[in-house]
């Protein structure tokens, strides 16, 4: 059953990435140059609406959603910054590069090969990094902004405690959707 869901959801995810233009490096590079914000609007819309859907289901049937919150530590910030260099230079990210290579883009195939090398280099470097501040300094740990985010019967620490998690997530979701709708198609002109 799980494998069947992997096939259906995976194919749907790949098809949607292709249809929104996320497999096209032009959209990523132009988004980062702030000259074409279409992809940013799409992703913000997706995050906002998905959040509203997931937390609504979570309110109707508590503890049935398969939440999995990752820890926030210094490595998430530093790793994100290193990621940012590659994201901008390559114009692709891990998911889109695989989808992009699959639609026949040769440059994406080189990105995937580089990615396999990069993740292997990290596997080699890990033993030297694991005892450093990269892993030791917490930036909030496994916490969520909203209440009621459960995994295996355990609730993640919630940052916002003065209203229900559903309200928090729906408000955040609406803010994301408003930003997506209001964001201009370009924040700067092509130079």
């Amino acid at each position: 059953m799980e494998i069947l869901l992997a096939i259906i959801l995976g194919a749907a995810f790949g098809a949607v990435l292709q249809r929104i233009g996320a497999t096209n490096p032009n959209h990523i590079i132009d988004m980062l140059k702030l000259t074409d914000m279409k992809l940013a609007k799409t992703i913000l819309m997706a995050i906002g609406l998905a959040s509203i859907i997931v937390f609504t289901v979570n309110a109707i049937a508590p503890q049935t959603v398969h939440f999995s919150v990752k820890a926030a530590y210094l490595g998430v910030l530093v790793g994100g910054m290193i990621f940012g260099i590659g994201f901008a230079v390559g114009g692709l990210c891990p998911g889109t590069s695989l989808a992009s290579a699959a639609e026949g883009r040769k440059d994406a195939m080189f990105f995937v090969l580089g990615g396999l090398l990069g993740s292997w280099l990290f596997a080699i470097a890990y033993e030297h990094i694991k005892t450093t501040d990269i892993y030791r300094t917490s930036l909030g740990g496994k916490s969520a902004l909203a209440e009621g985010v459960f995994r295996h019967g355990h609730e993640y620490h919630a940052i916002i405690g003065f209203m229900s998690g559903t309200v928090t997530a729906v408000v955040i979701g609406i803010i994301f959707i408003i930003i997506a709708a209001k964001m201009p198609n370009a924040l700067r002109k092509e130079d």
Binding site: V89, P94, L121
Partner: peptide, 18 residues
């Protein structure tokens, strides 16, 4: 693209996600 891939996945693994 290759260099982009190296940085992106090295960073993603350090961050624990992409």
């Amino acid at each position: 693209a290759f260099i982009g891939g190296v940085f992106t996945l090295f960073g993603a693994r350090m961050a624990g996600g992409c």
